[in-house]
Amino acid sequence: MIATRDAYGEALAELGAENDQIVALDADLSGSTKTGVFAKKFPTRFFNMGIAEANMVGTAAGLASVGKIPFLSTFAIFAAGRAWEQIRQSVAYPKANVKIVATHGGVTVGEDGGSHQSVEDVAIMRAIPNMTVIVPADGEETKGAIRAAAAYKGPVYVRLGRNKVANVFPAGHVFEIGKGCELAPGTDLTFVTTGLMTAQALIAAEKLKAEGISARVVHIGTIKPLDKELLLQAARETGAIVTAEEHSVIGGLGGAVAELLGEECPTLMKRVGIHDRFGTSGKSEELLKYFGLNAETLVEEGREIVSRKK
């Protein structure tokens, strides 16, 4: 078990040693976002921009314009939320080679409460043309995603979490932008999940198996561009889709899948996520339970959707 932000810190420092064009920026949260690991190894290539996210985004765009590969980090709410229009104008519109790695996405931020819990960032990043949006499931996938983001030429938004999460992928997992992964076979329904909900879906699929329900698990690490083929195949073969994410059901993975299936393969569907609400203070585990972001909810929704098929 490792937090995706810790995996990011390691991966960025590794990449920094391989490619001296990589630079990092942070807005006074380098200890939390783990860009501090890079800063310690490459102090001249690290820019602390202070508590000024809008300027950090523009600065990164300028660095990219002269050939650098900037990784900028802060909490998801301040990256995607605070600096949305700067990301749109200075990064996405010119297709600048800037990597926005936002940590502390979702409600697992915990005690800091609703002000700090971004449940909309995937939706608002996904809406911007030229933007690639990645939400890794675990540490291994994060390392692969950071490597893929560095190799890709253009804007990338990677959403990471605060807490340790269960391992889903084996060590050395190669991440490919735009490719989802079928992690468990199944014929009665498909859990389509991202981020920390993928580990929960694997547990739920096991539990449902004991009840005689065969649940497929498809992990979507790249929310945009979406792996349409894999999703349409799952919809056609299982006839029922339950999405799950630590994000609003509006505009995130659930929204993206609903848009795809609505147009290309109308399928019974249920979105598990945050239902048009803000977060609140509490311990991470308490909040996941409070918002129904766990295997138990997926088991219930899986059972329910299979019963609706008949």
Binding site: A61, Q86, S90
Partner: peptide, 28 residues
């Protein structure tokens, strides 16, 4: 728009963002 005009290095127009980009260039 830097994507389409020869000689233009960055996209501007939404006010207040150019100085940040210029300083990023200067740092790089």
């Amino acid at each position: 728009d830097s994507k389409v005009t020869p000689g233009v290095d960055v996209c501007t127009g939404s006010l207040g963002q150019g100085l940040s980009m210029a300083n990023g260039m200067a740092l790089g």
